[in-house]
């Protein structure tokens, strides 16, 4: 083995270094990967399921699934693309089961009751001169995104917030580039419609 395994705490280690060590059974190296990606993995789950407890459990399951599947990770794509894809699958299985249990279908026509993350909008002093404060815009954006279908929401967040390419998003969502572009298109159309009042005459 060309890499020393004795100091996996080195923050300089690349994802691939850590993956190689983890593939040899080094749980500490995997722990560092968990620390690196837990916020993203948890965030992805949270945006899909809209509650902390389920998102926490799903993020756990995603990492355990990743640990079990590490042997099949060949490094053809980046580790984060791979872990996102696993997370996406785990969260989608969960959503599918819930849908089968009849706890509500997911599509754009049914408004999600919760504005995801609305409470996380930074507080600002209201500016009476503005028609809409920045805070109010933030709240409406969160509410609108919460009303998108999970597919549309994931695609738009991975593109707009995370800045991933169409190809990366396609890999993460296990779909084609064409499907990703179509999801982004419809997500934006839907947001435009939902935010009509906010951006009209802006």
């Amino acid at each position: 083995m060309s890499h020393p395994t004795s100091s996996p705490t080195d923050a300089e280690l690349s994802d691939n270094d850590l993956v190689r060590q983890a593939q040899q059974g080094n749980a500490q190296a995997f722990d560092l990967l968990v620390t690196r990606y837990r916020g993203k993995v948890y965030g992805m789950c949270y945006h899909l399921v809209h509650n902390e407890q389920d998102a926490w459990d799903l993020a756990q399951n995603a990492f355990i699934k990743a640990w079990r599947a590490l042997g099949s990770f060949k490094g053809d794509s980046a580790f984060y693309t791979w872990i996102y894809r696993i997370t996406h699958n785990v969260a989608y299985d969960w959503l599918r089961k819930r849908r089968i249990q009849g706890e509500g279908e997911f599509n754009d026509e049914i408004g999600a009751p919760i504005a995801a993350g609305a409470e996380a909008v930074p507080k600002q002093d209201p500016q009476p001169d503005d028609a809409l404060t920045n805070q109010e815009i933030g709240k409406r954006i969160h509410q609108a995104i919460a009303q998108l279908s999970p597919d549309h929401r994931t695609a738009i967040l991975l593109r707009e917030v995370e800045g991933h390419s169409y190809e990366e998003i396609a890999e993460m969502m296990e779909s084609s580039v064409g499907t990703v572009m179509s999801r982004l298109f419809y997500a934006r159309k839907k947001l435009q419609e939902l935010l009509k009042d906010t951006y009209e005459n802006a």
């Binding site: 837990r38 916020g39 993203k40 948890y42 965030g43 992805m44 949270y46 945006h47 902390e52 998102a55 926490w56 993020a59 993350g117 996380a120 909008v121 815009i137 933030g138 954006i141 969160h142 995104i145 738009i156 967040l157 991975l158 707009e160 917030v161 995370e162 934006r188 947001l191 435009q192 935010l195 951006y199 802006a202």
Partner: peptide, 17 residues
């Protein structure tokens, strides 16, 4: 403008409790 607002107001990553 919507895209810009999303970038400004929404974060993908969340702090794990």
């Amino acid at each position: 403008a919507i895209s810009a607002s999303i970038r400004e107001h929404v974060s993908f990553e969340r702090e794990v409790p």
